[in-house]
Design a protein around this nucleic acid. Structure first.
Length: 894
DNA sequence: GCGGACTGCTTACCT
DNA sequence: ACAGGTAAGCAGTCCGCG
C-alpha cells in the first residue's frame, strides 16, 4: 500500500458527545466526510476503535508532534496534529527507511562474520563516506542495514552492534534516527497531498529577517546559516493544541497506601476529564457501601458545569473512559506514566479487555497512547532545568498540590476521609479538581507550557513525548546529533572520545569533583551604598562561542594549534575549524541575547508576540544554562571533561582579569561570583571603559545587571542582601530566606528586611538598629511564652531518599520521619518532613505528634540569633551584646 | 565518663 | 543523571583529662 495516511476515527463518540452537551463543540468536522469511507460499522461500544484502513487524505496544515516505530508494519510513523479539525493523524513512512549502524570494516570483511550474515534481521550493506571530526579526516564506513531496530540493539544478546567489533551510531533510537535522516521538523507544519508528506516552508516576516541579518552581518557564513535555521524554527507560529486532563480515583482498602498500578486489584471509582474546549466530565461508579443514590446524568448541584455520567459496571466506565481518551489528540496527566494510565491499562486487562481495545501502550518507563499524545506533567515539572530556569524554583515539591498552589494559587482539595468512604459528590469534586488543576497548569500564562514544549522540541529535534520526559542532556544530545547527521559527520563513540579526552588537569576545591570550577570573590564586609552589579551575559555559552570550544576542537590533532593555549590549563584549541558545539550553542546564545531577550521586553509589540518572544527567550535560557555542564557529565554522549574544564578555567580568567582591570582604572570591587562583579559607587565613565575593555580583550560582552541603593555583605560568600532604588530587596543565600527555616523565623526575618529596605543613608542605620533590636526582643518573648503555633515552629526538610537509605548518619528529619513511620504514616523519598525541636531524648518530633509544651525554647533562641546575626554582623551589631542581659531575664523562671 | 576539637554527612543554596 | 563552590547544623569519632 503506497498511500499511507490513515485517519483515526470514531463514530459513536462524536454523535454522543454532541447529543449530550448543549455547549457547542469547538471543532469543525468537515474532514469526516472523507474519513467516513473508512469508518467501521461495527458496534463501537464493544469493539474499541482501530485502524480502519489507509485513506488518501489531504491535510492542509498539520504539525508533527511525534515519531514512533510501527512494529507490525516495520516502519516509522508520524503523529500529526491537524490544525483544521484538531485531531491526530498518523502518517506512515513511504521511503523504506531502515534501521542501521556503522562499521569501519569493509563489506568484504564483514561478510566474513557469519553471525552477522546469518542474523535474521540482517538486510545488507551500504558504503558511505563520513567525516570523522575527532581525527579530522574523511572515513569510508559501511552501513549495516537491518530489518528492525531490535536487530541492531536493544535485546540482551545477539544484536548486530554486539556481533561486530566496533559499532558507530548504534545507540541512537530508531525514531530519532528517522527524524535526523529524513529531517523531520518536530513541532513544525507539514501538508499532505495524496499521501505525500510535504514540509510547509516558513519564512519569517521580512523585517525580522532583515534585523537578524544585520545583527549577524559580521559573522561567518556558517554562523549566519545556523542562525537563519534557528530563526525559522523559532518564529513559526504554534497552533493552539486541543487537550484534556485526566485523573482517576481508586477505592483502596488500605487508605494510606497508594494502590499498585501493576496489580490494579481495586476498582476505579471515578474518572475526571477537564478539557481545553471547556468540557468538564466526571464518570462515577456505583459502590455498594455508599448509601446515597447515584447522581444521574443531570449533574450535581455542587458541580453545575460538569457533565456527570454514572455507571453500574466498571467495565462500562472504563470503556467510556477509553472513548473519551481517543477523542482528544493530547491527554494530560500528573504522574499518568506511573499511575493513572498504567492503572487504567492493567485494570482493563484484569477485567478481561483485549489489548487491542485499550488505547494505551505501556512502555518500560512511560505510558503512551496508540494514536494521541500523552503528556505527563509530573515528569516535565520534575525536570530540574524546568524547575530552576523556567519557573525560578517557584515550586519545591513536585506534587500536584505544591505545583498547583505555587503556580496557580490552587492546591488540591483536602480530604477528610479515605477515597473509599467518600460520598459521590465529594469524590466527584475532588477528582475533577485534580483534572482542573492539571489542565490549568498548561493553560496558565497563555498556554506557556505548551509553547515551551513545542519550542524546545523544535530546537532539539525531539518528540513531544521524549522531550517532556527526558532531561536537558537528551535534548542537547539530539540537537547535536542532528547537526552531525545533517553535515555527514560521524557521531563519535563514547569510548573513543574517553580514550583521548577523558582526563582533567585541574584540581577541584570540593573533594571528589573532577575539575576546578568557578571563582568566588571574598566579599568586603559591611554596608555599601550605590553598588552596581556587572555580569557577563550567558557567560559559559559566550566562552564556548568565543573560544571555539567543542569536543573536537579542544586538544585537536593539529600540532600548529597547540600554541592556542587555554589559560589555567594545559589544553589548547583548534584554529583551523569551527567547533560544532561552539557553533550550535554560540548561535543560540547570540539569538537569545541580541534578539529574543530584548524583543520580549520591547514596548509597543502586540501582546501575543511579546509573550511568544518571552517563551522563546526562556526556552533558550533553559538550554543554554545546561550547555556547559553536560560536557562534564559522564552520562552525556559527548562527555569531554577538557571542554568543561576549559570553559570554567576561561571563566575564572575572565572574572579575575576584569576585576584587575576595574581596580586598575580606580574602581572598588566589593564582591563577585562566577560571572558577576559588584562595584562600589562606580563612575559611569569607568563602567563604560571597563565594558569596552572586556569586548576588546576578552571578546565578551559585560552588562549592567542591576544597581543597588545599598548592599550588605557579611564575610560569607554567596550570602548578601541588596536594596534596590525602589526599596525592593534581593536576598541571596541568607538562612532567613531558606525554605527549611521555621515560618516564625522567616516572618521575623522579613520584618527586619522591611526595616532595612527603608534605610536611605548610613545615618539611618542607627534607627533601624533599634527597631531590629525590638523585633528580636518580641521574638524572644513570644518564644518564651510559647505563643507560636507548632506549624510556625516547624523545620521543613526534604527527605531525599527512603529512610533505609540513611546508613552513615541519621539526621534530625529522619528521626522525625521514623516516628511518623511508627505511627503508620507513610513517608517516602521526596517528602518534606515537618518537625519541631523538643526537650527529651529524641530532640525532635514531627509536628503531628508534638505538643507546644515540650518545645526546646533555648534551641530556638539560638536559631533566631544566628539567623539575624548573618545580616547584623555586617552592620556591626552584636545581638548578644545588646540583648545579653535581656536574654537572661527572659529566661529567669517566673 | 564527659566535653571540646575535629571530620564527614546532609541539605539548601549561588552562579 | 548538566557542572562546581559555599554555608550551616548535626552526627559521630577521637583525644585528653591524672
Amino acid at each position: 500500500m503506497s498511500t499511507s495516511l490513515y485517519a483515526f476515527l470514531k463514530g459513536k463518540e462524536d454523535r454522543e458527545t454532541q447529543d449530550s452537551s448543549p455547549k457547542p463543540y469547538a471543532e469543525p468536522r468537515e474532514f469526516s466526510s472523507q474519513a467516513k469511507e473508512g469508518e467501521g460499522k461495527g458496534d463501537e461500544a464493544k469493539e474499541s476503535p482501530k485502524p480502519e484502513g489507509y485513506l488518501s487524505l489531504n491535510l492542509a496544515r498539520a504539525y508533527v508532534l511525534s515519531v514512533a516505530y510501527d512494529g507490525e508494519g516495520k516502519r516509522a510513523f508520524l503523529k500529526l496534529y491537524n490544525e483544521a479539525d484538531h485531531r491526530i493523524y498518523l502518517w506512515f513512512d513511504d521511503s523504506g527507511h531502515k534501521p542501521y549502524c556503522l562499521s569501519d570494516l569493509t563489506p568484504k570483511e564483514l561478510e566474513g562474520i557469519s553471525a552477522l550474515m546469518n542474523h535474521p534481521g540482517f538486510v545488507g550493506f551500504d558504503v558511505v563516506k563520513k567525516y570523522d571530526a575527532l581525527a579530522d579526516q574523511e572515513r569510508t564506513m559501511t552501513k549495516i542495514v537491518a530489518s528492525d531496530p531490535l536487530a541492531i540493539g536493544g535485546r540482551p544478546t545477539g544484536c548486530i552492534r554486539d556481533i561486530i567489533p566496533k559499532a558507530w551510531e548504534a545507540e541512537i533510537k530508531y525514531h530519532e534516527c528517522y527524524i535526523f535522516d529524513r529531517d523531520i521538523a518536530v513541532g513544525m507544519p507539514y501538508k499532505i497531498e495524496d499521501g505525500k508528506l510535504i514540509k510547509i516552508d516558513f519564512k519569517p516576516p521580512p523585517e525580522v529577517e532583515k534585523s537578524i541579518e544585520s545583527l549577524f552581518k559580521d559573522e561567518s557564513e556558517e554562523f549566519k546559516d545556523m542562525a537563519r535555521r534557528w530563526v525559522e524554527l523559532l518564529e513559526c507560529p504554534v497552533p493552539s493544541l486541543r487537550r484534556a486532563a485526566l485523573d482517576i480515583e481508586v477505592a483502596s482498602t488500605v487508605p494510606t497506601r497508594v494502590p499498585n498500578p501493576r496489580e490494579a486489584k481495586e476498582p476505579i471509582v471515578a474518572v475526571a476529564f477537564s478539557a481545553s474546549d471547556g468540557r468538564r466530565r466526571i464518570l462515577l461508579l456505583r459502590r455498594s457501601n455508599v448509601k446515597a443514590p447515584l447522581p444521574m446524568s443531570i449533574g450535581m448541584p455542587s458541580l453545575p458545569e460538569a457533565e456527570v455520567e454514572a455507571f453500574e459496571s466498571e467495565v462500562d466506565m472504563i470503556r467510556r473512559t477509553f472513548q473519551i481518551i481517543e477523542d482528544y489528540p493530547i491527554i494530560l496527566t500528573f504522574n499518568g506514566d506511573d499511575f493513572d494510565l498504567s492503572y487504567l491499562y492493567h485494570r482493563a486487562l484484569n477485567l478481561g479487555f483485549d489489548r487491542k481495545e485499550i488505547p494505551i501502550v505501556m512502555g518500560r518507563e512511560s505510558a503512551s497512547l496508540r494514536h494521541g499524545i500523552h503528556l505527563d506533567l509530573y515528569k516535565f515539572f520534575f525536570n530540574r532545568s524546568i524547575q530552576v530556569y523556567a519557573f525560578s524554583q517557584k515550586y519545591r515539591e513536585v506534587t500536584l498540590d505544591d505545583v498547583g498552589a505555587s503556580l496557580l494559587g490552587v492546591g488540591k482539595m483536602e480530604l477528610e476521609k479515605p477515597i473509599s468512604e467518600l460520598d459521590y459528590e465529594s469524590l466527584a469534586t475532588y477528582c475533577l479538581q485534580d483534572a482542573d488543576i492539571t489542565l490549568s497548569l498548561t493553560t496558565m500564562d497563555e498556554d506557556l507550557i505548551m509553547k515551551l514544549i513545542i519550542v524546545l522540541a523544535r530546537i532539539s529535534h525531539t518528540t513531544i513525548e521524549d522531550l517532556s520526559r527526558q532531561g536537558v542532556s537528551t535534548w542537547l544530545r539530539n540537537m547535536i546529533s542532528y547537526e552531525h547527521r545533517r553535515r555527514g559527520w560521524l557521531i563519535p563513540r563514547s569510548e573513543d572520545l574517553l580514550e583521548v579526552k577523558g582526563f582533567t588537569a585541574t584540581k577541584a576545591i570540593i573533594e571528589g569533583k573532577k575539575y576546578r570550577g568557578a571563582e568566588v570573590i571574598e566579599p568586603e564586609p559591611g554596608a555599601h551604598f550605590n553598588v552596581s552589579v556587572l555580569d557577563f551575559q550567558s557567560m559559559y555559552p559566550s566562552i564556548i562561542r568565543r573560544y571555539n570550544l567543542s569536543y573536537e576542537t579542544v586538544r585537536c590533532p593539529h600540532p600548529e594549534c597547540q600554541k592556542n593555549t587555554i589559560p589555567g590549563t594545559p589544553h589548547w584549541v583548534c584554529g583551523r575549524r569551527r567547533g560544532i558545539s561552539s557553533l550550535v550553542i554560540g548561535s543560540l546564545r547570540d539569538l537569545r541575547v541580541r534578539w529574543y531577550k530584548s524583543r520580549a521586553k520591547e514596548k509597543g509589540l502586540p501582546k501575543a508576540l511579546a509573550n511568544w518572544y518571552g517563551v522563546i527567550s526562556n526556552s533558550l535560557k533553559v538550554v543554554l544554562n545546561a550547555a556547559y555542564g553536560v560536557f562534564g557529565a559522564e552520562s552525556f554522549f559527548l562527555y569531554c571533561p577538557p571542554v568543561a574544564e576549559a570553559t570554567a578555567s576561561i571563566g575564572r580568567y575572565a572574572i579575575i582579569e576584569t576585576i584587575r582591570q576595574a581596580q586598575a582604572i580606580g574602581m572598588k570591587v566589593v564582591y563577585g561570583d562566577t560571572d558577576s562583579i559588584f562595584l562600589k559607587a562606580p563612575e559611569a565613565s569607568k563602567i563604560e571603559k571597563l565594558m569596552d575593555w572586556s569586548v576588546e580583550r576578552l571578546g565578551m560582552e559585560l552588562d549592567i545587571d542591576k544597581v543597588y541603593r545599598y548592599a550588605v555583605f557579611s564575610s560569607r560568600k554567596k550570602n548578601y542582601l541588596g536594596v534596590f532604588q525602589d526599596g525592593s530587596v534581593d536576598i541571596k543565600g541568607l538562612t532567613g530566606k531558606k525554605r527549611n527555616t521555621p515560618l516564625f523565623l522567616q516572618k521575623a526575618f522579613f520584618d527586619m528586611i522591611r526595616i532595612l529596605s527603608e534605610v536611605k543613608s548610613a545615618e539611618e542605620f542607627d534607627e533601624a538598629k533599634e527597631r531590629i533590636t525590638e523585633l528580636v526582643k518580641t521574638c524572644y518573648t513570644k518564644l518564651k511564652n510559647r505563643q507560636y503555633s507548632l506549624e510556625e515552629l516547624a523545620f521543613n526538610i526534604m527527605m531525599s531518599r527512603a529512610i533505609e537509605g540513611y546508613v552513615k548518619t541519621k539526621p534530625q528529619h529522619i528521626k522525625a520521619a521514623e516516628l511518623l513511620a511508627q505511627k503508620g504514616i507513610e513517608v517516602t523519598a521526596g517528602d518534606i518532613i515537618s518537625f519541631v525541636k523538643v526537650v527529651g531524648p529524641t530532640g525532635v518530633k514531627p509536628v503531628q505528634l508534638a505538643s507546644i509544651k515540650e518545645i526546646d525554647v533555648e534551641k530556638y533562641v539560638g536559631y533566631v540569633e544566628s539567623t539575624f546575626q548573618q545580616v547584623l554582623d555586617a552592620l556591626d551589631i552584636d545581638l548578644k551584646e545588646i540583648l545579653g542581659a535581656t536574654r537572661l531575664e527572659f529566661f529567669m523562671p517566673g
